[in-house]
Amino acid sequence: MSATLPVQTGTSAPALSPSPMPGHEYEQAPEQAVNQGANQAANRTRTPTTEQASARITARATEPAVEQAPATPSLAMLLTLGLIAAISGLLVATAYEYTAPIIAEKERLATEAAVLRILPGAVAKRDFVIDAAGRLAPVDPASGGANGSAAGGGGLVYAGYDAQGRLQGLAFTGVGSGYSGPVEVLFAYDPERQLIVRSKVLKSTETPGFGDKLDTDPAFLKNLEALDARLDATGQALANPIVTVKNGTKTQPWQIDAITGATLSSRAMGKAANQAAQRAAPAIQRSLTLLAQPSN
């Protein structure tokens, strides 16, 4: 179909003079497009091989005077794309090399600031992972970054110590799905009383003005000042799973009173607290002696 086009628009065919360089060929295009829009569009979408083939067909089918726009050699295209890919790879690699340490340091500082803020009295923190045996294992500060990322975000347990090296409390993260996405919360845990004593939303996409009350509403935050996270007799799980209940119906210390108008977000908080405590509290209780050792 496209091969016959130059024949039909034969009167304007001389405009398609051969041009030696691809760049110039393209620059000529709009002028030709004035009287040969359709023909030009067909040329543009054609691949080099079909273009060469159609050029042969055209030459055979009509007089040799009809000239075809030259095809760009495939090699030139490959070289150009290769060159562009190389430049782009170089730029991306340079940017990554330069920013990766800054990003890692900023993230470490942000986590540390969040942990120390949620554990008042603490001036230093140590990171722990939960190992296969369900106990805490210290993360070597030198390889901390690598281990932390290997543990998969919410995996770490942070222990806060005061200046004398006494344990001030523990912090761990939990995730619950809310109204418009996951809500990631950092919880402070008191190992002696087995209570969740504070919370801070780290990441949330909840509706502004409703869902963000999770972090600001004083009545709601009261729920999380002494949230029961006792272990059952076996020490494997919580004695009472933490649940969110309808506003005004909280009767037990392991229940969270939902915010009116933000029930789903409140439930996300409950799910996050439950998930985090079920995961971390048994391991913490098993490793109290390790935690009690002053940091060095």
Binding site: M21, P22, G23, E25, Y26, A29, R44, T47, P48, T72, A76, M77, T80, L81, L83, I84
Partner: peptide, 10 residues
């Protein structure tokens, strides 16, 4: 790079 980018792959 405008002189070297063939129009087919631009």
């Amino acid at each position: 790079l405008r002189r070297w980018i063939p129009k087919q792959v631009r």
